[in-house]
Amino acid sequence: MRHPVTAAPTPERVRTLAALAAPTHVSVAGSGVPTAAARGGVDGRGRPVLLVKPGETLHGAPAETLVTVDLTASREVGGVERPRALLKVRGWTQPVPAAETRAAAVAIAEACPDEDLFAAVEGGGPALLRVDVCHVIYMTGQESGVLDAESYLASAPDPLLPPAERMVRHVNESHSRQLREAAERLTGEPAQEEVWLWELDRYGATLRPGPGHLVRVPWPAPVATPAALEHALACLMHPS
């Protein structure tokens, strides 16, 4: 008897979290410079892109400066941002080539709604730096580990990520009763707190019935389309 795959391969899951994450801090390896706040996002290959401004440590720093960028992925539930994962990306800085600055700015604009992005594109004082990945340390609350650059960059986020995130927001905003009933069926216990849909991907769903408590529900087989994902989620919420 075949058992369903319960979760995405680790590199895919880490890339998925990175795609939803935003830089919070950056530190320069081997220097006495204090860790600084960071702003920016992650490009389509999973590489951090930092918006640096005049007067900041990395503005004008030499290329190939070794840094560690903290990326934080969170989930807003009940009006509160709750952390899902911390990723520490170590790598070497490179200026984003002029021909690629606009595309890089667009890639990070949602995570970094800063007017200085426009100045960086136009060649003003602010600049965009890309971090060429050496390795990624991941901590999700359930597991932790290290991915080398080859494993991280060769993978990709969950192919259903955009529609999955839309479904998560809709369910958490509009179907709290069904979520509670689903969690109670799965755990066999009354839910003591509000239940949230925490993760949703082609391999399954994760419910959060309370702090530090996650319940993973794998699909019978991985789904391949948004419609199939929506159907699997509906079966979880409304079993026949």
Rank of each mutant, 00 (worst) to 15 (best):
V14D: 08
A63F: 06
L50Q: 10
V136F: 03
L160Q: 05
A227V: 03
Y203Q: 05
S74G: 11
H231P: 01
L200E: 10
P9D: 05
P162E: 11
G30W: 10
C235Y: 00
S174G: 04
H231W: 10
S174P: 10
A227I: 02
H238F: 14
G30K: 04
I108D: 00
T57Q: 01
V121A: 11
E189P: 10
W198C: 00
L214M: 09
L207A: 00
P34F: 03
E150I: 09
P190S: 06
L161W: 15
R2T: 15
G125W: 05
G55F: 02
V5Y: 09
A119T: 07
P11R: 01
T206F: 05
R15S: 02
G125N: 05
T187V: 13
G40C: 02
Y203G: 07
T101L: 12
S31Y: 07
Q192K: 15
H59E: 08
V52S: 02
V42I: 05
V121H: 03
L117D: 07
T68G: 02
S155P: 13
M237W: 11
L179F: 10
V223S: 06
P9W: 15
E230T: 04
V131A: 01
A85D: 12
A29C: 07
H170T: 12
L160P: 15
A191D: 01
R177F: 14
L236G: 00
M167S: 09
L233H: 03
G60M: 00
H59R: 01
N172K: 06
D158L: 03
V89D: 02
M237A: 03
P163G: 12
I137R: 15
L236I: 09
N172Y: 10
V52R: 04
A127D: 04
